[in-house]
Design a protein around this nucleic acid. Structure first.
Lengths: 345, 345
DNA sequence: ATTAGCACTCTATCTTATCGAGTGCTAACA
DNA sequence: TGTTAGCACTCGATAAGATAGAGTGCTAAT
């Protein structure tokens, strides 16, 4: 267990390093007016803290820098919620005032505002379409041989895909299909759509429609949805302003990572339980993220649909501030998007 | 007018610099076996070429590097179409074999293949939706007070937007509106939709429907479309591998530029006439693009809809190769997407 | 237990020296 | 007159000292 004095010192080291990005020396610590002991004492304590693995030196005679373990301890035990400035809270909340804008716009702007307020990179994972429920199914013929299939979900999302019609398919056939599908599939989550389709409608379609098989295979194709929600980025280039990314190699790795959707999603771990999650440096299990921390939070839309907000910054990140902002944003988004759903925005 | 010998030398300088990224010296030039004159002669000629502004020195005693004027002359007069390897042509054409995939997928993959083959960044500007024509209009109610408006266009694009219903609006009202709109707006380009709506349907709607005004304003809102097509990127991070971008500042500027849609679109000048366009360095009128060249080509979908393909690379770019690839891609895309349209892919 | 003092270490920065590639000029040559 | 060999000169890149300063760890005094 750490002594009170060690806690104080660790706290100063993290706080100072977060703002200055420079190793923190004993003299610098002793200058804080609430620090009553001398640099020599501090050096002794720092030596202990280093032995315990909470801080590190960049070279033999440098000041100390928090280690990953140090950051971890800091966020787990030393972090006290910081109150945000009224102005900042306002700028987030004003986002949710305007009742007219679309869900997608709200999310997009949220990402931008968060990245501006934090100067880090924001990633917002939109709600997973597969939890939406079918509201209406529609087929619009385009030419003799093509048509668009459209699925409208209960909260206004529209999925569509063009597909081939078998030769000699009549408009009345299409109408039949649409009726059958709307009859049986209303209210089904998109997630289960394919299974239901297979179990409950394939036979009916075969009975009522000639050349049903071609259509059925098209339907199976159409009802294959992406596994995850859509990604929205804010401040993608903010990382380039952080001194730890003066190294071109790191920049390249990070940029390449951000261009790969599935990798980004795996960073967010959107399946995790509620609450705010912090992953520091190597905890992200990704080489490109060695010097980064990711803070994630979930927001809800209605009951079971959820998305994630993530802030990616250097491990030397202002954790307190980011957590506070994330919390405001999370609750704001949850409220705003759920309202849209029930009030019919 | 340049002498034949000067042309030869300029050609070697550009070709060598393109592959090596190092200033080219007289000795290096004289080593080419089709160069019959001595380094001293070459130095004299280079001195003249420099005076004429076609080449530059990086410092007093360095080899020569092509100037923007040099590149410009090179692409205007010295460029001879290079035949692509069969394999490369195949890898592009195989893209267009598969008849099942969607237009969006074709475009997306085109961007990726081009960036892989060139090692530069590819930007594809999709067709402008505003040239599509209305095929079908649809309104799907979600709740008491909200509904989704859907417009399907003649080549399968689906636009949709959620909007508020006035209180006490009945399903039969909605049906009436949909019928009126489908009656009058079929075949209208989205571009003219708003005008037509205003001129030809507003009155009819007012006559047949109570609370028409609220609906009309929603309709006006829905029929406001983006000015430009969608952007698709390939190889966004490829630039980071170019030696001219070892400077973090340049990287930052470039990355920031690429994140701003409107700026990127202005780089492409999609309104320009047909053919392949080359913009070298400062010709792009953008600080971040000082060391970059942009080569653009247009592709067609049907008659009047067009998109652009752009390759962004360092000014020291393999122009011949990129132009050839771009040309193959352009005709491939034009053919593939127009086929989709008429054959009902 | 704390702290002042001091030798020591290591980085960052500045100088200086050296090497080599490449030029421009001059004079010789065909 | 056009071409070329020869040579002094320039400049960047690299390496090797030299110096200053921040910070540590240890020891001895308080």
């Amino acid at each position: 267990m750490l002594t009170n004095r060690q806690l104080q010192i660790l706290q100063v080291i993290v706080d100072d390093f977060v703002t200055s990005a420079q190793p923190v020396g004993s003299r610098q610590i002793s200058k804080k007016d609430w620090i009553t002991f001398s640099p020599a004492t501090i050096r002794n304590e720092m030596s202990d803290l280093e032995e315990l693995g909470f801080i590190e030196k960049t070279h033999t005679s440098s000041g100390r820098v928090p280690s990953e373990k140090g950051y971890r301890f800091y966020v787990d035990h030393l972090l006290k919620p910081k109150t945000m400035s009224v102005q900042e809270i306002r700028s987030i909340q004003s986002l949710f005032q305007n009742q007219i804008i679309e869900m997608e716009q709200v999310i997009r702007e949220s990402a931008n505002i968060l990245s501006e307020l934090t100067t880090y990179t924001t990633i917002l994972l939109g709600p997973n379409v597969r939890n939406h429920r079918v509201k209406r199914f529609q087929i619009v013929p385009l030419t003799e041989q093509t048509a668009v299939a459209i699925i409208v979900t209960d909260n206004g999302h529209v999925e569509n895909q063009t597909f081939n019609l078998p030769k000699g398919f009549s408009p009345s056939d299409i109408e039949k299909i649409v009726n059958i599908l709307n009859d049986r599939l209303n209210g089904i989550p998109l997630l289960e759509l394919q299974r239901k389709l297979e179990l409950e409608t394939v036979e009916v379609l075969r009975q009522h429609i000639s050349k049903a098989d071609s259509i059925i295979s098209s339907l199976m194709n159409i009802t294959t949805f992406q596994n995850d929600g859509k990604l929205y980025f804010g401040g993608k280039t903010n990382m380039l302003n952080q001194p730890e990314f003066h190294d071109l190699n790191k920049v390249r790795m990070l940029m390449e990572l951000m261009d790969k959707e599935n990798q980004v999603i795996s960073l967010l771990h959107p399946d995790d339980h509620q609450g705010i999650h912090i992953r520091i440096g190597s905890e992200n299990n990704h080489l490109a993220m060695e010097d980064c921390s990711v803070i994630t939070a979930s927001y809800l839309i209605g009951d079971d649909q959820q998305g994630s907000i993530a802030i990616i910054g250097p491990t030397r990140m202002d954790y307190q501030r980011v957590i506070s902002l994330l919390d405001i944003m999370r609750s704001g988004l949850t409220r705003a998007l759920s309202n849209k759903l029930s009030d019919g925005f």
